[in-house]
Design a binder for these strands. Sequence first.
DNA 1: AACGACCGCAACCGCGAATAA
DNA 2: ATTATTCGCGGTTGCGGTCGT
Length: 331
Amino acid sequence: MGRSPCCEEEGLKKGPWTPEEDKKLVEYIQNHGHGSWRALPKSAGLNRCGKSCRLRWTNYLRPDIRRGKFSDEEERLIINLHSALGNKWSAIAARLPGRTDNEIKNYWNTHLKKKLLHMGIDPLTHRPRTDLSLLANLQGLLAASNLGNLPPGAWGLDNAFRIHADAAQAARIQILQSLFQALVPNNAPNVDLVHLLGAAMLNQPGRAFPGLLLGGEGQVNSAVTSLIAPQMAKEIPLPPSSSSLPGSSSKNPVGVENNSSFSPSQMSRSGNNPTSASTPSAVSPSPEGFNLDHFQEMINSHDGSSSCTLEPWDALADNESYDLCWRDILA
DNA sequence: AACGACCGCAACCGCGAATAA
DNA sequence: ATTATTCGCGGTTGCGGTCGT
C-alpha cells in the first residue's frame, strides 16, 4: 500500500524539536485539534512532516502525559502485561494512564529487561532461562539454598520485583521438576515431583503457595520454595497451611501427606518412578537434606531421550490470582 | 583533565492496518 | 473490488549526558 512520503524527499526538517516548534504545535492543536496530521504542519506553519508532528504530540507535548520515574506499581503492571501481551506497547500503554508506548518501550528495553535477565527470567518469554550457564548454576543455587547463605542483598528487591523474583524461584523449581521428569522413565502425567522433592529436602508437609499451578489448583508445595529461597521464606509471612485452603487436601499430589518425607535415595532412575513412593511414612527423614551428588548424578546420566512435561508457566507469569494472592501476603 | 564506553531517551524509519476515494 | 492515502505501531538509530579509567 501507499506510504507517506519521506520527510527528506520534501526537504522538511528532521531531528530534535525546538521550543518554538513545540509552541506552534501545541497552540495549533489547542485551537484547532490535530485533524489530519498530514495537513497539520502546513496549517500550523511548521516545516515538519505530519508524522513527526504526531509523534512529538503523542509522545511529548500531550497535556495528559505523566513524566518522571515509574512507580513500583507501574513496573509490576508493565511486567505482567508484557508477559501476557508481548511487545504490544500501545496496548500496554493503554493500561497505564499518562504513559506513552514509546516511554514504556524505552523503559522496558533499558531497565526491566535487564532486571528480569538478572533474575534468571527470559524477558521475551517470561519463562526461566534454560540456557546452559543457568543450568550449570543449579548446583550452586541449591547448595546456597541448603545453607541459607544466599548473597547479601539477593532478596533486597522492591515489592514489584519481589513478585517476579518469587516467580523466578518458581521458575527454578520448574527447571528442577522438568529435569526430574526427564529423568524418570514412563513418566506418569500427574506425578508431582515438586512435592516429592520438597518433602525430600525439607521433610515439611505440603503447604499452599500461590505459584506453580499444580493439578489445576494453583497450589504448590512451599516447602520447595522455602528451601530454595530460605531468605524469602523468612521475610514473608507464611500463607495459611494447605489444609485450610480449598482443594489442597483432596488434590494433594501423590506421595505427599502431612509429616511425610521422601529420601533422595528414592529418586533414582532405575525403574523407580517417584509415584511409587506413595508410602512416605515408611521412609525415614533425610537429615542431611537434599543430596547434591545424587542430583548431579541424575543430571549427568540423563540422555535427553525422554521428554519433559512442563507446568503451565504462562498461567503463572500472568496469573491474576497469583498476583493478588501475593499482594495480600505482602500487604 | 581528557578520553572512551556506556546508558537513556527522543526521534526516525518502515511496515501493515484502516480508511477514503 | 481496487487503489490511494493516512494513521499507528514496533524496531532501530543517533545524540547528549554520565561514568569509569
